[in-house]
Amino acid sequence: MIYIAGFIALAAVVCAIMALRAAKTLVSALWLAGTSALVAFALYLMGAHEIAVVELSVGAGLVTILFVFAISVAGDEALDVRTVIPRPVAITLVIVTGLLLAWFTVAQPIANLIQPIAPSIVVPLADALWKQRGLDVLVQIALIFGGVLGVIGLLADGAEAGSQKSEVRGQIREEEAQQ
């Protein structure tokens, strides 16, 4: 089963490449949703059922809706194909990073790198999350509150700017009416 998960994860890589190759950002967002769905399927086949459900609902659902909303508000912008960093430099950096990762993981025997610290004891996700990694849960809650406050602050700033503009327009109209 995990072989199939590996192949599905490789298909997710293809989706990710298509997400970056697409000319329109809306199409990119849809390819990203496909990547998330395939990653969620691979996670399910690897036995991480809860994570797969969360990834499918949040990664492929919520985030895609947010992308579509942001693109509909901001609009799609066709940019010049020239990049800030030259492509050969970027490709070299990516290849060097990939080779380093491969050297640290694939090329060396995995058994030497990842030694089981203790005999394999299957700890349920709920126990691991709430008992062993309680601090992580607190950090997640803080992140969610911070994110919500940040978005409210950003959108409120935009709404204030919009209301100020409408007030200025109203004053101009009144002045024109008086004249």
Binding site: L43, A48, I114, A118, D136
Partner: peptide, 13 residues
């Protein structure tokens, strides 16, 4: 690593 719960908890984060 044989620590499935730990890996999944970090993945949730």
């Amino acid at each position: 690593n044989g620590q499935t719960g730990q890996g999944q908890a970090l993945a949730m984060t």
